[in-house]
């Protein structure tokens, strides 16, 4: 190896090590302060009741969080809050993302078992694939918590009522159509056909719409869960149906993107409405600002969800009382109740 090459290898190694150190530093100390402003204002807001955490007895638990997909703000926000709340309680919280890959998640859960964590919170990609891993975790004395989806073996769970969530989206949309569009509208639908629980949500939207707004019609459907795909799909919908006024989405990401699509097309008028699910901060802000995202079905604020999950796990490990099977409360949020919802959830919008 020539002198030049040796020097180059040395420089590259130093740069890589330095950047890894820097990133590690950012992650551990600057993470919360470096959160994006739009979301961080609310994300770092301390909801009512969380002050108890400060007074809580320091717990030295090792918590593993294996989530469905941290690319999705719903999961990312909850994970961030779990880390924050867990660390406030003196715990070590390690978060991993399966990126919707069931095999990867099984491996991650196995890794957590090897790490000998005390608590394992799993947002399952496919609960059936976790049968062996969750049994092994339970046998090892780990507290296993099923988040959003029930697990084959678990200590406790909190799940989403997708049918109710879909029905609530349809109720908001039908109400808007009734009051603003004479009870009849061409509707666009954003779905995610690969995920069974989301399909239940989509079907519930369609069924409830047929019941509440029989003259309305779903004229187009596209797969969308992100802002980028939502925007592109909405733009294409408007080409096929220039008079389309309503979009219902299985998630808030697509709904937010659809809003950009309508705004880019200059069609974001008072007679347009877009509804999603999740209660993402940016969607709540859009609702408050009177934009065409006019409603969402929220599952409560991320910090509240994180506290509920970890408090249950703490109770289970410390021999206290806890709820074994819980369901998220689906709350329809529109301009009419957004202030109240945010106040209850401890969210501060601009």
């Amino acid at each position: 190896m020539t002198q030049k090459k040796r020097m180059l290898c040395l420089i590259v190694s130093v740069v890589l090590i330095a950047s890894m150190t820097l990133m590690a530093g950012c992650n551990s100390s600057g993470g919360s302060s470096a959160a994006p402003a739009g979301s961080s204002a609310a994300a770092t807001e301390e909801p009512a009741g969380s002050s108890a955490a400060a007074d809580a007895v320091a717990r030295d638990y090792d918590i593993g969080v294996a989530f469905y997909d941290l690319n999705d703000p719903f999961w990312a926000e909850t994970a961030n809050c779990m880390k924050e709340y867990g660390e406030e309680n003196g715990c070590t919280v390690t978060i991993v993302s399966a990126e919707i890959n069931a095999a990867k998640q099984v491996q991650q859960v196995e890794d957590f078992i090897s790490k000998d964590v005390d608590i394992l919170v799993i947002g399952a990609v496919d609960p059936a694939t976790l049968e062996e891993a969750t049994k092994k975790a339970m046998d090892a004395g780990i507290i296993v918590y099923g988040y959003c989806f029930a697990l084959p073996y678990e200590t406790a769970e909190i799940i989403v009522d997708d049918a109710d969530m879909g029905a609530k989206v349809a109720e908001m949309a039908a109400d808007f159509i009734d009051k603003n569009l004479g009870g009849k509208a061409q509707i666009g639908m954003f779905n995610l056909p690969l995920y069974p629980s989301i399909v239940i949500r989509e079907e519930a939207i369609r069924e409830k719409m047929a019941e509440l707004s029989p003259e309305s019609e779903f004229v187009m459907t596209a797969e969308s869960a992100t802002i980028e795909t939502g925007m592109t799909a909405a733009e294409n919908f408007l080409q096929a149906y220039p008079d389309m006024k309503v979009i219902t989405s299985i998630g808030d990401g697509g709904a937010y993107g659809a809003m950009q699509g309508f705004e880019n097309a200059g069609k974001a008028g008072d007679d347009v409405a877009i509804y999603g699910t999740g209660g993402n901060i940016e969607n709540l802000q859009a609702i408050k600002d009177g934009k065409v995202v006019r409603g969402t079905v929220a599952l409560g604020y991320a910090m509240q969800r994180a506290q509920a999950v970890l408090d249950t796990c703490f109770a289970a490990i410390e021999g206290g009382e806890y709820e074994k099977m819980a369901t998220f409360t689906n709350t329809s949020v529109t301009i009419d109740n957004i202030d109240q919802y945010c106040a209850d959830a401890g969210i501060t919008l601009e």
Binding site: G38, S40, A43, N71, P73, A79, N80
Partner: peptide, 22 residues
Amino acid sequence: AFLISRGMTIFGLPDTFRTLGS
């Protein structure tokens, strides 16, 4: 990208910037 955003959406860009895209 994830480290900066913590997986969250960053919103609240000025309207002037939107001109570039729309």
